[in-house]
Simulated scan of single mutants.
Amino acid sequence: MNLWNMTNDRRTYLNLQYGRFHGVGKNDIPELKRQKIKFPEKWIGFNEVHTYKGECTQTGVHFFLDDYQFERIWNRPTVYVKQLSKFALVATPDFSLYSDYPVAMQIWNHYRKQWLGTYWQTYGISVIPTVSWSNKNSFLWCFDGVPKDSPVILSTIGLGNDREAWKAFHEGWNAMKRRCHPSEVLIYKGKKSEKNHMFDIAII
């Protein structure tokens, strides 16, 4: 990784003071390294990390939550590295890519997701890429920085019985397969109960 360190500068640069990483695509999106990933036995949301009493080495952390519950990891990235490093696997943050957001804001949220995942990898944390998209136009950049032939994770929360939403999801699914060639896709469907998260695994 091409790490540009500006920690000696008293100014802040939207986390560039902590690291600037090799970027890909027209927007210089940080590129994650492909890692050997073993799916953990259990997953918890980031909002549970601070109070979690279970075995961290057998637990993964996801960010399929409202953005306000994890915006702090971008605002203070150094604070959470030690905490997250205890877990078996950490998904990159699922910052929202709403189709009615300005495109610049959508790209910014994708950049932040990739930057944090790459930053965590420099500390030896096992990271699984979270993939998401908004509409067909987002396919031009929303997979930038996601390593090919790697497991990925995504969510179907909120799709419900909306036929148009599912149609858009399947268009994004097919675009993801073409661009990322994921080896496996872990699909988060929501909580089955307070302590048991529900996942499906799709082999591509």
Rank of each mutant, 00 (worst) to 15 (best):
V146Y: 01
W115I: 07
F143A: 04
S150I: 07
Q114A: 13
L16Y: 11
S126Q: 15
W43Y: 12
H110E: 01
K189N: 09
N2Q: 13
H22T: 15
F63G: 01
V131H: 04
L97M: 15
F46G: 04
W115S: 04
T122G: 02
Y13W: 15
K136H: 08
F169N: 05
V61D: 00
Y18N: 15
R179T: 14
M105F: 12
F64R: 06
W166S: 11
K26V: 13
R72S: 13
Y80I: 09
I153P: 02
R112P: 03
G23A: 08
F199V: 06
D28Y: 12
R20S: 10
E41L: 11
S134W: 03
A88I: 05
S138I: 10
P77Q: 03
G23V: 08
A168N: 15
S96P: 04
P129R: 09
I37R: 11
K86W: 02
S132F: 08
D100C: 05
V81D: 01
K42V: 00
E171P: 03
W166G: 10
N196R: 14
A104R: 15
Y18I: 03
R11A: 15
F70Q: 00
I201S: 12
R11Q: 14
F63S: 01
M176H: 11
W173V: 05
N75A: 13
F87S: 03
I201L: 15
P30W: 02
N109S: 09
L159S: 12
G145M: 08
L3M: 13
S126G: 02
S150A: 15
K86T: 09
L159R: 11
I201P: 07
I128K: 06
Q114H: 07
Q69P: 00
I125F: 06
G19D: 02
V185S: 05
K189G: 05
P102H: 07
R163L: 15
R10G: 06
E164F: 12
D28W: 10
I73A: 00
I37S: 06
I157C: 12
